[in-house]
Design a protein around this nucleic acid. Structure first.
Lengths: 354, 354
DNA sequence: TTGTAGGCGTTATCAA
DNA sequence: TTGATAACGCCTACAA
């Protein structure tokens, strides 16, 4: 009935339970439970005996068994859904979320939605099956209302990078529009007016926001955006590469590019390299890249504060867990233009050159 | 006693249970369980009724409750410990591990050890508390024998990137030594003999392996390595930067650098940029970098097949779960030298130049 | 200060 | 084919 082998026995069948500890310490299971949970009313002497037994048996509390019984049903775990864990943005986000969670004694389950709504839904479903205490989601698709149903088990949600749709929840986003607008103004200051924009699908919130920042800044200080210089729907580097080749082949060609995310920036850089225009066409990317400062010319970017996005997201989640009925909050994280060279290439002189 | 509200009721207190489903379908709980677990001996008609009730109540199986009762105690989750989730190597590894796990209907818990043995131990402890079915670990420190004790609950371990110490387990590693040796031969073929090596702490398995590959290749075809041109213990980019500046300041200076990992490569590149020697000193990095091909000159690397490391690691783990007593296996994943320019810079002529 | 009984949501047993 | 009941490891309630 109880674990009959000691820890050096290779045929050990199951982990020791609170019962095994109780037997060994010669106390009742409730006393063991009290010790494990730092509850009062245990004689120091008894506590010692229990702790000794715990050590000898190498007992470790079965957290998941405990969670099904405890009043709040908390599992001390949270779920994180990003588009692609291998993407540097998601990787940095995951790291900071995990750091905050670990400080709060929580573990993190991760999943990649690949930007597919169904997959996001599926992953969230699995997380809820594991009864995570909360969710941090970089949402895909156009409808997160399915989460209202998942809410039945009480797991709060925080959206990071993009707000969820058709549902209210705590949210952390970057200053997308004003960040891109700043990039445009920066280019205009360096003499550009034929500025092109390359972005992701408009159904992605950040993509829409960034394009809107582009349009308004162009309207404000460059006489409006040229529709032929706007390319959206660029889901991967290859698409961005093609679109950039296409833009650079136009006459008149744009003298500067603004890229909506780091994948697109990489595609555009490859295309520019291919055409040999790295030194002549200005480019500013949204979101920083490792090695950006080693490129020639070095890459000017609108850097997101990924650490802040993640930390704030996790913080909002843990505060929500403490105060379930508090009003929802939306945090906006500033972005920062980092001038490194590629965004300071001047527009060719001779008015509208070429 | 049972969930009294329907799914649109905001005051819903708890998730529906198998009991609620049973009541609604007018069957016993065991029948519901049979349907949920695809067990035989359920009339199709009954099955339909149960599934209908599941849909109406929006029931979702409580996986953690199920795991405490099932014979094998499986939780359908695995734990992954890497050094730093934000590192591109770890991020790609996490992604593929998660993909394989998800295919196998398992979720992944993640943790960053930061290369600190105590933290690794602590994270593994938490994972075991959650009764993960298995562990994939990029080990830190010099002793993973503590895992033998964690084994009491039966979770097998697979080591990835580096073998564990003082414990036997399935392992997946890259061809570290021969990869670096190939880099050295490549440089020698381009006329180099004063080749420097920059590496991590020797206590890190991969670092030791790579340095040993360096030494043996140098002995074999460049008359042996010059001790002054070997720098180890470089834990971060800043240290690598300093070490590189130092090496480049020597007289005679090395004409080529071999870098032991991607963090070191980045530090070295910054230092070379700083000294204006990017075009004159050859460099080959271990592990590929995003944008490596956009640098000028583009970066020659010994690329690890991170996807294979992760896939093989996960595959070994799931096979171990199926066959707990099979002999341990060690898989070696080939690396590949990708010549892009920086490794093909010829040694300065005039015999021992400068 | 300590222990016993009961229950969490599920799966396992075994009888109907 | 079906279901009542026990059991998993733990926490809660309550009694001693």
């Amino acid at each position: 009935m109880s674990a009959m082998q000691n820890k050096s026995d290779k045929t050990f069948l199951r982990a020791p339970t609170i019962k095994d500890v109780a037997v060994r310490a010669g106390v009742g299971i409730k006393t063991v439970s009290r010790v494990l949970n730092d509850e009062p009313n245990v004689r120091p002497q008894t506590r010692e005996r229990v702790l000794a037994a715990v050590g000898e048996l190498n007992y470790r509390r079965n957290t998941i068994a405990s969670s099904i019984r405890r009043r709040d049903q908390r599992t001390a775990s949270i779920g994180l859904v990003v588009e692609d864990l291998a993407n540097p943005f998601a990787a940095r986000l995951t790291r900071v979320v995990q750091d905050v969670a670990f400080q709060q004694s929580h573990l993190v389950l991760v999943g990649s939605s690949e930007g597919v709504a169904e997959r996001e839904h599926e992953i969230v479903g699995e997380f809820c099956s594991r009864r995570v205490d909360g969710l941090i989601i970089v949402p895909s698709g156009t409808d997160q209302s399915y989460l209202r149903v998942e809410h039945t088990h009480g797991a709060p949600v925080v959206f990071v990078d993009r707000p969820g749709r058709r549902i209210k929840a705590d949210t952390v986003v970057s200053e997308n529009a004003s960040g891109v607008a700043e990039a445009v103004r920066h280019l205009v200051r360096h003499g550009h007016s034929r500025i092109a924009y390359l972005g992701d699908r408009q159904s992605v919130y950040t993509a829409a926001q960034r394009l809107s920042g582009f349009r308004s800044a162009m309207a404000e200080c460059a006489g409006g955006a040229d529709q032929r210089h706007i390319r959206t729907g660029l889901r991967d580097g290859a698409k961005a590469y093609q679109a950039t080749l296409d833009l650079l082949g136009q006459r008149p060609a744009p003298t500067a590019l603004v890229c909506g995310n780091n994948i697109i920036t990489m595609g555009a850089l490859h295309a520019m390299q291919q055409c040999g225009v790295r030194e002549h066409v200005a480019i500013i990317g949204f979101d920083d890249l490792e090695l950006a400062d080693l490129l020639q010319p070095a890459l000017t970017v609108v850097a997101q504060d990924v650490a802040a996005l993640g930390t704030e997201g996790a913080r909002l989640l843990f505060e929500r867990l403490k105060h379930p009925t508090a009003p929802y909050r939306r945090v906006t994280v500033p972005v920062r233009l980092i001038a490194r060279g590629s965004g300071e290439i001047p527009a060719p002189s001779g008015r509208e050159g070429r």
